[in-house]
Design a protein around this nucleic acid. Structure first.
Lengths: 136, 136
DNA sequence: TCTTGAACCTCTAGCTGCTAGAGGGATTAT
DNA sequence: ATAATCCCTCTAGCAGCTAGAGGTTCAAGA
Protein backbone atom coordinates (compact mmCIF):
# COMPACT_ATOMS: atom_id res chain seq x y z
CA UNK A 1 0.00 0.00 0.00
CA UNK A 2 1.53 3.24 -1.03
CA UNK A 3 0.54 6.78 -1.79
CA UNK A 4 0.17 8.47 -5.14
CA UNK A 5 3.46 10.28 -4.60
CA UNK A 6 5.22 6.98 -4.09
CA UNK A 7 3.57 5.54 -7.20
CA UNK A 8 4.62 8.59 -9.12
CA UNK A 9 8.23 8.17 -8.04
CA UNK A 10 8.32 4.50 -8.92
CA UNK A 11 6.83 4.89 -12.37
CA UNK A 12 8.02 8.32 -13.38
CA UNK A 13 4.45 9.39 -14.10
CA UNK A 14 3.51 12.71 -12.58
CA UNK A 15 0.85 12.86 -9.92
CA UNK A 16 -1.74 14.87 -11.83
CA UNK A 17 -1.19 12.58 -14.80
CA UNK A 18 -1.97 9.54 -12.66
CA UNK A 19 -5.19 11.15 -11.54
CA UNK A 20 -5.93 12.02 -15.13
CA UNK A 21 -5.47 8.41 -16.20
CA UNK A 22 -7.81 7.34 -13.44
CA UNK A 23 -10.38 9.79 -14.67
CA UNK A 24 -9.98 8.57 -18.23
CA UNK A 25 -10.62 5.02 -17.10
CA UNK A 26 -7.13 3.71 -17.86
CA UNK A 27 -6.57 2.66 -14.28
CA UNK A 28 -9.08 1.60 -11.69
CA UNK A 29 -9.88 3.92 -8.83
CA UNK A 30 -7.73 2.62 -5.97
CA UNK A 31 -8.70 2.15 -2.36
CA UNK A 32 -8.64 5.15 -0.09
CA UNK A 33 -7.18 5.83 3.32
CA UNK A 34 -9.35 6.95 6.24
CA UNK A 35 -8.67 10.49 5.16
CA UNK A 36 -9.63 9.87 1.52
CA UNK A 37 -6.15 9.59 0.07
CA UNK A 38 -5.38 7.11 -2.67
CA UNK A 39 -3.63 3.91 -1.62
CA UNK A 40 -2.19 1.67 -4.27
CA UNK A 41 -1.29 -1.97 -4.11
CA UNK A 42 1.58 -3.59 -5.93
CA UNK A 43 -0.40 -3.96 -9.16
CA UNK A 44 -0.50 -0.17 -9.40
CA UNK A 45 2.99 0.35 -10.80
CA UNK A 46 2.73 -2.47 -13.31
CA UNK A 47 -0.31 -1.18 -15.04
CA UNK A 48 0.94 2.37 -14.92
CA UNK A 49 4.29 1.39 -16.41
CA UNK A 50 2.45 -0.35 -19.21
CA UNK A 51 0.57 2.85 -19.86
CA UNK A 52 3.64 5.02 -19.67
CA UNK A 53 5.58 2.85 -22.02
CA UNK A 54 2.72 2.75 -24.47
CA UNK A 55 2.38 6.51 -24.40
CA UNK A 56 6.08 6.90 -25.07
CA UNK A 57 5.60 4.75 -28.12
CA UNK A 58 2.90 7.14 -29.26
CA UNK A 59 -0.17 5.02 -28.61
CA UNK A 60 -3.23 7.14 -27.92
CA UNK A 61 -5.28 6.81 -24.75
CA UNK A 62 -7.89 4.97 -26.78
CA UNK A 63 -5.30 2.56 -28.17
CA UNK A 64 -4.11 1.86 -24.68
CA UNK A 65 -7.61 1.21 -23.43
CA UNK A 66 -7.91 -1.41 -26.14
CA UNK A 67 -4.57 -2.98 -25.31
CA UNK A 68 -5.34 -3.08 -21.60
CA UNK A 69 -8.69 -4.64 -22.32
CA UNK A 70 -6.93 -7.31 -24.33
CA UNK A 71 -4.36 -7.97 -21.70
CA UNK A 72 -7.15 -8.78 -19.27
CA UNK A 73 -8.23 -11.64 -21.52
CA UNK A 74 -5.15 -13.80 -22.04
CA UNK A 75 -7.05 -16.39 -24.02
CA UNK A 76 -8.10 -14.06 -26.80
CA UNK A 77 -6.25 -14.13 -30.08
CA UNK A 78 -3.64 -11.45 -30.25
CA UNK A 79 -4.47 -10.23 -33.71
CA UNK A 80 -6.17 -7.16 -32.35
CA UNK A 81 -3.15 -6.13 -30.37
CA UNK A 82 -1.00 -6.75 -33.37
CA UNK A 83 -3.27 -4.65 -35.53
CA UNK A 84 -2.98 -1.68 -33.21
CA UNK A 85 0.79 -1.99 -33.14
CA UNK A 86 1.07 -2.37 -36.90
CA UNK A 87 -1.03 0.72 -37.36
CA UNK A 88 1.26 2.59 -35.01
CA UNK A 89 4.28 1.37 -36.91
CA UNK A 90 2.96 2.71 -40.17
CA UNK A 91 2.12 6.03 -38.52
CA UNK A 92 5.63 6.25 -37.23
CA UNK A 93 7.09 5.47 -40.62
CA UNK A 94 4.95 8.07 -42.30
CA UNK A 95 6.03 10.64 -39.75
CA UNK A 96 9.66 9.77 -40.28
CA UNK A 97 9.33 10.15 -44.02
CA UNK A 98 7.66 13.50 -43.65
CA UNK A 99 10.24 14.76 -41.21
CA UNK A 100 13.03 13.69 -43.53
CA UNK A 101 11.59 15.86 -46.26
CA UNK A 102 11.36 18.73 -43.83
CA UNK A 103 14.92 18.16 -42.76
CA UNK A 104 16.09 18.34 -46.33
CA UNK A 105 14.26 21.56 -46.92
CA UNK A 106 15.34 23.17 -43.69
CA UNK A 107 18.92 22.23 -44.42
CA UNK A 108 18.70 23.95 -47.74
CA UNK A 109 17.04 26.96 -46.18
CA UNK A 110 19.57 27.38 -43.42
CA UNK A 111 22.44 27.44 -45.83
CA UNK A 112 21.55 31.12 -46.17
CA UNK A 113 24.52 33.37 -46.90
CA UNK A 114 22.76 36.67 -47.36
CA UNK A 115 23.49 39.72 -45.25
CA UNK A 116 19.99 41.02 -44.98
CA UNK A 117 16.44 39.80 -45.05
CA UNK A 118 15.73 41.09 -48.52
CA UNK A 119 17.64 38.24 -50.07
CA UNK A 120 17.46 35.76 -47.21
CA UNK A 121 16.72 32.22 -48.21
CA UNK A 122 14.79 31.48 -45.05
CA UNK A 123 12.18 34.11 -45.73
CA UNK A 124 12.16 33.51 -49.45
CA UNK A 125 11.74 29.80 -49.16
CA UNK A 126 8.88 30.13 -46.75
CA UNK A 127 7.16 32.65 -48.96
CA UNK A 128 7.35 30.49 -52.04
CA UNK A 129 6.28 26.93 -51.64
CA UNK A 130 7.16 26.40 -55.29
CA UNK A 131 10.82 26.28 -54.29
CA UNK A 132 10.28 23.17 -52.24
CA UNK A 133 11.84 19.91 -53.22
CA UNK A 134 8.86 17.96 -52.05
CA UNK A 135 5.26 18.27 -51.09
CA UNK A 136 4.01 18.26 -47.58
CA UNK B 1 -11.05 41.73 -53.63
CA UNK B 2 -12.29 38.32 -52.68
CA UNK B 3 -14.10 36.59 -49.91
CA UNK B 4 -12.74 34.40 -47.17
CA UNK B 5 -14.08 31.32 -48.94
CA UNK B 6 -12.14 32.26 -52.06
CA UNK B 7 -9.00 32.88 -50.02
CA UNK B 8 -9.46 29.54 -48.36
CA UNK B 9 -9.71 27.79 -51.72
CA UNK B 10 -6.64 29.50 -53.12
CA UNK B 11 -4.42 28.79 -50.16
CA UNK B 12 -5.80 25.53 -48.85
CA UNK B 13 -6.24 27.02 -45.40
CA UNK B 14 -9.62 26.36 -43.86
CA UNK B 15 -11.94 29.27 -43.17
CA UNK B 16 -12.02 29.00 -39.38
CA UNK B 17 -8.24 28.70 -39.43
CA UNK B 18 -7.93 31.95 -41.36
CA UNK B 19 -10.10 33.69 -38.81
CA UNK B 20 -8.01 32.11 -36.08
CA UNK B 21 -4.81 33.46 -37.62
CA UNK B 22 -6.37 36.88 -37.80
CA UNK B 23 -7.27 36.65 -34.15
CA UNK B 24 -3.74 35.54 -33.27
CA UNK B 25 -2.35 38.55 -35.08
CA UNK B 26 -0.62 36.62 -37.87
CA UNK B 27 -2.59 38.40 -40.54
CA UNK B 28 -4.04 41.88 -40.50
CA UNK B 29 -7.78 42.30 -40.22
CA UNK B 30 -8.90 42.84 -43.82
CA UNK B 31 -11.37 45.36 -45.13
CA UNK B 32 -15.03 44.55 -44.85
CA UNK B 33 -17.94 44.68 -47.24
CA UNK B 34 -21.02 46.80 -46.56
CA UNK B 35 -22.48 43.80 -44.79
CA UNK B 36 -19.41 43.21 -42.62
CA UNK B 37 -17.89 40.35 -44.58
CA UNK B 38 -14.13 40.06 -44.99
CA UNK B 39 -12.70 41.21 -48.31
CA UNK B 40 -9.12 40.36 -49.12
CA UNK B 41 -6.79 41.97 -51.60
CA UNK B 42 -4.15 40.13 -53.57
CA UNK B 43 -1.63 40.31 -50.73
CA UNK B 44 -3.92 38.06 -48.71
CA UNK B 45 -2.96 34.77 -50.31
CA UNK B 46 0.77 35.51 -50.25
CA UNK B 47 0.98 36.06 -46.56
CA UNK B 48 -1.32 33.19 -45.82
CA UNK B 49 0.72 30.84 -47.99
CA UNK B 50 3.81 31.89 -46.13
CA UNK B 51 2.07 31.01 -42.90
CA UNK B 52 0.76 27.73 -44.17
CA UNK B 53 4.10 26.66 -45.48
CA UNK B 54 5.77 27.61 -42.25
CA UNK B 55 3.24 25.66 -40.23
CA UNK B 56 3.81 22.62 -42.41
CA UNK B 57 7.47 22.89 -41.59
CA UNK B 58 6.56 22.81 -37.93
CA UNK B 59 7.18 26.43 -37.03
CA UNK B 60 5.04 27.58 -34.15
CA UNK B 61 2.70 30.53 -34.37
CA UNK B 62 5.22 32.52 -32.35
CA UNK B 63 8.05 31.56 -34.70
CA UNK B 64 5.96 32.71 -37.63
CA UNK B 65 5.17 36.00 -36.00
CA UNK B 66 8.90 36.57 -35.71
CA UNK B 67 9.56 35.57 -39.28
CA UNK B 68 6.77 37.75 -40.61
CA UNK B 69 8.06 40.66 -38.56
CA UNK B 70 11.46 40.15 -40.12
CA UNK B 71 10.12 39.90 -43.61
CA UNK B 72 8.57 43.35 -43.15
CA UNK B 73 12.02 44.80 -42.61
CA UNK B 74 14.11 43.78 -45.61
CA UNK B 75 17.14 45.72 -44.46
CA UNK B 76 17.59 43.84 -41.23
CA UNK B 77 20.29 41.21 -40.98
CA UNK B 78 18.90 37.78 -41.55
CA UNK B 79 20.64 36.10 -38.64
CA UNK B 80 17.47 36.04 -36.62
CA UNK B 81 15.55 34.25 -39.32
CA UNK B 82 18.40 31.85 -39.70
CA UNK B 83 18.48 31.20 -35.98
CA UNK B 84 14.81 30.28 -35.95
CA UNK B 85 15.28 27.92 -38.87
CA UNK B 86 18.38 26.31 -37.39
CA UNK B 87 16.52 25.70 -34.17
CA UNK B 88 13.71 24.06 -36.12
CA UNK B 89 16.20 21.92 -37.97
CA UNK B 90 17.63 20.56 -34.77
CA UNK B 91 14.13 19.91 -33.43
CA UNK B 92 13.33 17.98 -36.56
CA UNK B 93 16.49 15.95 -36.31
CA UNK B 94 15.81 15.08 -32.71
CA UNK B 95 12.32 14.00 -33.59
CA UNK B 96 13.57 11.84 -36.41
CA UNK B 97 16.06 10.14 -34.12
CA UNK B 98 13.40 9.44 -31.55
CA UNK B 99 10.96 8.08 -34.10
CA UNK B 100 13.64 5.79 -35.49
CA UNK B 101 14.06 4.21 -32.08
CA UNK B 102 10.32 3.77 -31.83
CA UNK B 103 10.23 2.24 -35.27
CA UNK B 104 12.83 -0.28 -34.30
CA UNK B 105 10.94 -1.27 -31.20
CA UNK B 106 7.57 -1.44 -32.90
CA UNK B 107 9.05 -3.56 -35.64
CA UNK B 108 10.31 -6.00 -33.07
CA UNK B 109 6.99 -5.96 -31.26
CA UNK B 110 4.88 -6.57 -34.32
CA UNK B 111 6.86 -9.63 -35.26
CA UNK B 112 4.49 -11.40 -32.86
CA UNK B 113 3.79 -15.01 -33.73
CA UNK B 114 1.70 -16.05 -30.78
CA UNK B 115 -1.84 -17.34 -31.04
CA UNK B 116 -3.21 -15.69 -27.96
CA UNK B 117 -2.67 -12.70 -25.79
CA UNK B 118 -1.06 -14.66 -22.98
CA UNK B 119 2.17 -14.93 -24.88
CA UNK B 120 1.75 -12.02 -27.25
CA UNK B 121 4.83 -9.93 -27.76
CA UNK B 122 2.86 -6.74 -28.19
CA UNK B 123 1.36 -6.89 -24.75
CA UNK B 124 4.48 -8.29 -23.16
CA UNK B 125 6.75 -5.68 -24.60
CA UNK B 126 4.53 -2.89 -23.49
CA UNK B 127 4.29 -4.31 -20.01
CA UNK B 128 8.01 -4.61 -19.59
CA UNK B 129 10.05 -1.62 -20.52
CA UNK B 130 13.15 -3.62 -19.66
CA UNK B 131 12.79 -5.45 -22.95
CA UNK B 132 13.38 -2.28 -24.91
CA UNK B 133 16.44 -1.84 -27.01
CA UNK B 134 16.60 1.83 -26.27
CA UNK B 135 15.43 4.45 -23.85
CA UNK B 136 12.75 6.92 -24.60
C1' DT C 1 -37.60 42.97 -58.11
C1' DC C 2 -38.00 39.17 -55.35
C1' DT C 3 -36.51 34.92 -53.62
C1' DT C 4 -33.79 31.24 -52.57
C1' DG C 5 -29.68 28.96 -51.19
C1' DA C 6 -25.08 29.30 -50.39
C1' DA C 7 -21.80 31.69 -48.05
C1' DC C 8 -20.70 34.55 -44.38
C1' DC C 9 -20.80 36.58 -39.43
C1' DT C 10 -19.77 36.12 -34.06
C1' DC C 11 -19.55 33.49 -30.11
C1' DT C 12 -18.88 29.54 -27.44
C1' DA C 13 -17.34 25.04 -26.59
C1' DG C 14 -14.68 20.97 -27.76
C1' DC C 15 -10.57 18.15 -29.12
C1' DT C 16 -5.68 15.61 -26.97
C1' DG C 17 -2.91 14.86 -23.12
C1' DC C 18 -1.71 16.72 -19.91
C1' DT C 19 -0.11 20.75 -16.35
C1' DA C 20 -0.70 24.50 -12.92
C1' DG C 21 -2.94 26.78 -9.31
C1' DA C 22 -6.32 27.81 -5.55
C1' DG C 23 -8.00 26.64 -1.31
C1' DG C 24 -8.35 23.29 1.79
C1' DG C 25 -7.61 18.58 4.60
C1' DA C 26 -4.41 14.43 5.95
C1' DT C 27 -0.20 12.38 7.36
C1' DT C 28 4.18 12.01 9.37
C1' DA C 29 8.27 13.18 11.93
C1' DT C 30 10.03 15.48 15.64
C1' DA D 1 1.54 19.40 19.66
C1' DT D 2 3.12 21.32 15.83
C1' DA D 3 5.33 22.02 11.58
C1' DA D 4 6.43 20.33 7.16
C1' DT D 5 5.05 17.84 3.67
C1' DC D 6 1.94 15.48 1.45
C1' DC D 7 -2.64 14.86 -0.59
C1' DC D 8 -7.57 16.17 -1.93
C1' DT D 9 -11.01 18.35 -5.52
C1' DC D 10 -12.06 21.68 -8.75
C1' DT D 11 -11.23 24.83 -12.30
C1' DA D 12 -8.66 26.79 -15.93
C1' DG D 13 -4.95 26.83 -19.20
C1' DC D 14 -1.63 25.26 -23.05
C1' DA D 15 -1.39 24.72 -28.89
C1' DG D 16 -3.70 24.90 -32.88
C1' DC D 17 -7.21 24.38 -34.48
C1' DT D 18 -12.40 22.47 -35.46
C1' DA D 19 -17.43 22.25 -34.96
C1' DG D 20 -21.75 24.00 -33.89
C1' DA D 21 -25.62 27.38 -32.86
C1' DG D 22 -28.12 31.07 -34.28
C1' DG D 23 -28.32 34.75 -37.21
C1' DT D 24 -27.02 38.00 -41.48
C1' DT D 25 -25.50 38.94 -46.29
C1' DC D 26 -24.59 38.07 -50.94
C1' DA D 27 -25.24 36.63 -55.77
C1' DA D 28 -27.78 34.49 -59.20
C1' DG D 29 -31.97 32.99 -61.32
C1' DA D 30 -37.17 33.61 -62.20
Amino acid sequence: MFSIGELSKRTGVKIPTIRYYEQMGLIDAPERSEGNQRRYSKEGPQRLSFIRHSRELGFTIEDIKGLLELSQHPDKPCQDADKIAVQRLSDVRARIAKLRRLERELKRITACQADNVASCAVIESLADHGLCDAEH
